[in-house]
Every structure is written in structure tokens, then in C-alpha cells.
Simulated assay, not measured.
Amino acid sequence: MTFSICVRERYLDEEGDEQIRFGVAVTTRLPGVGTLCPFASENGAVATQSLVNVELGRKGVEYLDDGLAVADALDALLNADDGSAQRQLHGVDRNGEFAFSGEECKPWFGDIMGENYTVAGNLLTGESVIEATAAAYEEASPPADPAEDVERPLADRLIEALAAGNAEGGDKREELPVQSAALLVCSTEDRAIDPYYDDLRVDATETPIEDLRETYQQAKRGFEMALERYEDAYDEDELDTE
């Protein structure tokens, strides 16, 4: 019912220290996908889909937070799941990638593991959906050197990746007009304020990608305006912002 992407990116913060950000984005021809499929923390990102078992995502991220490698964590959860043949589960941690598509998922289904990312989908118009999603992310992703980061926020680039997959046909169930989309980005960086645009959902609409992009643009605008206003207030009141 879904296609999604999980990514890992290394970058340098303003102090020159290496950090890692994780992102996951998903869309489907059903409402409320943001409540079911995408999970992330400062240790990784996971997407659970097809016949969804939400606990695979929740526990998957919990296991990553406990220090398990993504392949060990997700494989262990699947081995304990009687319905694993109908699941799709994929994700990334600080050092690796994992992707699984059960043999009983509805066609077309499949997954891709690339360097620093995974993509998976089911009930799609074809393999080109996840190929286009992966290609769009690769084209906009940062270089291997953490010092050479990209200017566009990861949330923006995740939406672009979903849009590329959707342009290839996306979810094939055209008889279901009510759709949804969501994204979630987390980072190892200790930020005073997390960007408002790093955790967004569009729960019920007929144009999920377009609406998610508009929501992102408004959230980014609001975040920048809030920063400007509060920075002025700190200066005027001589407050310690640490």
C-alpha cells in the first residue's frame, strides 16, 4: 500500500563536529500513514509497511537506541513475527542498511538498498517507482565528505524523492482517492530548537505530495520567522541562550 525511503547522512555542524541525520518519508493511498509507518531517532530510521505491524517500527528504533545494528534488530523482529511473509521492513542505522520484503506482499513489491539509504514499496504500478525514488534522492544527496554538505534540508529532498516515485505511478490503487504522506528527520546534533519542518504529516488528502510540500514550505517559513523574532528578543533582553 506504500512506498517509502530511509536515509543516513553525515555532516559537520557549526562547530565543525561530525554529526549524523536520519530521515524517513512515506506515502500511500490510505489516510494517516504518518501514524503507522515512519519511525526515527538519533540512531536510525525505520519504515514498516505492507500489512503493517506498527510494533516492528517502534521496537526497531528502540533496538537501535539500545545499540543493536539495524540488520540484527530488524531481522530479530521479523523472525519473531508470524506474519513476516506479508511485511515490508527497511531502515538504516549509523553504519548499515537493511531491507526486507515478504514473499506474500501484494505486487508490484520490492526494495532497494543503496549506499546510506533504503527504498521499498508494495502495490505499486511497477519497479520504476522505487527506482525513481532512489535516483532522485541520490541526485540530491550530499557527497561522501561530511564537510561538503548540501544546502537544501533533508526534509525538502525527501519530499522530492517521493514526488519522483509518485510521478512514475506510485500506489496503483486509483480507486482509493484519499491518500496521505509523512516525513520525519532526526539528528545526533544537540540543537537548541529542532526545525519545525522535520516532523510533518498530511493525513487525508487527494494530493499528498503537493500538500506535504506546501506544509514543509510553510513550516520552514514559520521556523525562520520564529528564529528571527526570538533572536531579536534575546538581544534586547540580554538573555543567555545556552
Rank of each mutant, 00 (worst) to 15 (best):
L212M: 10
L30F: 13
E148S: 13
D171E: 12
T28I: 06
L176I: 02
A164Y: 04
L30G: 09
E206L: 02
R213T: 09
P146A: 02
A136C: 10
S41Q: 11
A85D: 15
G83C: 05
N53P: 05
A233C: 09
V7L: 00
E148Y: 08
I130G: 12
Y11L: 07
D198T: 15
I159R: 03
C37A: 15
L200E: 01
F39S: 11
G16I: 13
E228G: 12
H90Y: 01
A47S: 15
T48E: 04
L162W: 01
D194K: 14
N79T: 03
D198W: 14
K59I: 08
K172S: 15
G60K: 03
E151L: 09
Y196E: 03
E103M: 07
P195K: 00
E168F: 06
R94P: 01
G170R: 01
V119E: 00
R87H: 05
A132M: 09
Q19R: 15
R29S: 09
P142C: 10
R21F: 01
R191Q: 15
G23P: 11
A181W: 00
E242M: 03
E175T: 11
N95P: 01
I20K: 04
G32N: 14
L184Q: 01
Q49S: 12
Q86Y: 07
S50C: 15
Q49G: 09
L162Q: 02
N116I: 00
N53H: 13
R157I: 06
A132P: 07
V7I: 03
Q86V: 00
I20A: 07
R213E: 13
R173Q: 05
G126V: 12
A69Q: 12
P208M: 09
L51E: 09
S141N: 07
G102S: 13
I209Y: 08
A192L: 15
Y63P: 04
P195E: 00
G169C: 11
G91T: 06
S84N: 11
A135K: 14
E127D: 10
L78C: 03
Y63N: 14
L56D: 00
L36G: 10
V54Q: 15
V54R: 10
P142H: 07
V185Q: 03
C37E: 01
L123G: 05
D17P: 00
D13Y: 10
G83H: 03
